[in-house]
Design a protein around this nucleic acid. Structure first.
Lengths: 171, 171
DNA sequence: ACCCCATCCTTGAAAGTTGAACTAAATGGG
DNA sequence: CCCATTTAGTTCAACTTTCAAGGATGGGGT
């Protein structure tokens, strides 16, 4: 990441060009500021961090406002462990409750309560406005499209996948 | 964020269009996957999370490999409190040490040790490679340029600034 | 000199996250 | 039917982050 660290003469790492460094820094700068901004906005207006809010949104969109824990974890891109803690907290708030899964006795459903839905109804407009102010009100429609494509491409390189090393069926 | 939450008839919140929702989700998806990816990569290869690595990079780039705590906190976009804890941890690792600021007895400099610099030398290539694989190897030069501009614009809407409310000189 | 207040940084407790270990239940081949 | 394996979810300990409070120094006005 830093040219000053380059001190050898081999084929060496492919350092970033000045332009690439500039873009990478802009990316880090913007994404961290935005995440901090949304975390504060939601902590203030909804009493929970962004990721917890996202869990409620997922549940609100799910059929019958409920979802299996593992599925929810995958959709929200968090570990099952983290989800366990998060749901425990949301349960204390009365916004979510747990429910045994009828078809699989190991399973749990997280269910959005009416109170939880109410919180979303009250806070979603402010949240959307915050997102809009930072992203969509500042970009041209063309840039929005470009951003969508770029993020799509980056995500494709990050799909939870094997590293390619040490796969049993390759040994 | 969710049309299903819209239940009133007033002027109402400006919900996101389908296209905007798609882009927003792609953004969240890609940025969280990337941050997780880099955190794991660095935790594995360098024994610290991405943000701590960033602190070492800042110090490596600073004159005499040292920086005032507050300045470092601002550059790394974290609170002073968080920085205090982080530097304490890096100090335990022997990668950073604290130094009283000669000109201001309240001040502290964080100084990158030779060991800390060594860690960077060893791990920077792998980190750059990780960044490259996800971002620069997957985007066209034009997309890289577009991303830079977009991130620049978004950051401008997020500069640590007043909310516009309760400014003393407006009362 | 003195006082007031801003700035610099740290601290401690509470909240959140992580990764590994663990329990329970489902699954599938002998 | 049995046992080994896999899957679902929780729990524990270690670590990180946040928030509010606090101690110390600097600086400007009087």
């Amino acid at each position: 990441m830093n040219r000053a660290l380059n001190g050898e003469g081999g084929p060496g790492p492919r350092w970033l060009s000045d332009e690439e460094q500039r873009v990478w820094r802009a990316y880090l700068h913007a994404t961290t500021l935005l995440e901090d901004h949304l975390d504060r906005q939601l902590q203030r207006d909804a009493g929970m961090p962004h990721i917890y809010y996202g869990l409620l949104v997922q549940l609100a969109q799910a059929p019958r406002r409920r979802k299996r824990m593992t599925e929810l974890a995958i959709d929200a891109k968090i570990t099952r462990s983290r989800l366990s803690h998060a749901i425990a907290r949301l349960e204390k708030n009365g916004w979510v409750r747990r429910e045994d899964c009828p078809s699989d006795k190991r399973g749990q459903n997280a269910v959005l309560t009416d109170e939880g839905f109410g919180v979303l109804e009250r806070t979603a407009p402010g949240h959307v406005e915050a997102v809009r102010q930072v992203m969509f009100d500042r970009l041209t429609p063309e840039q929005v499209m470009q951003l969508g494509e770029i993020m799509q491409l980056m995500a494709e390189g990050l799909q939870p996948q094997d590293t390619g090393a040490d796969l049993p069926w390759l040994r």
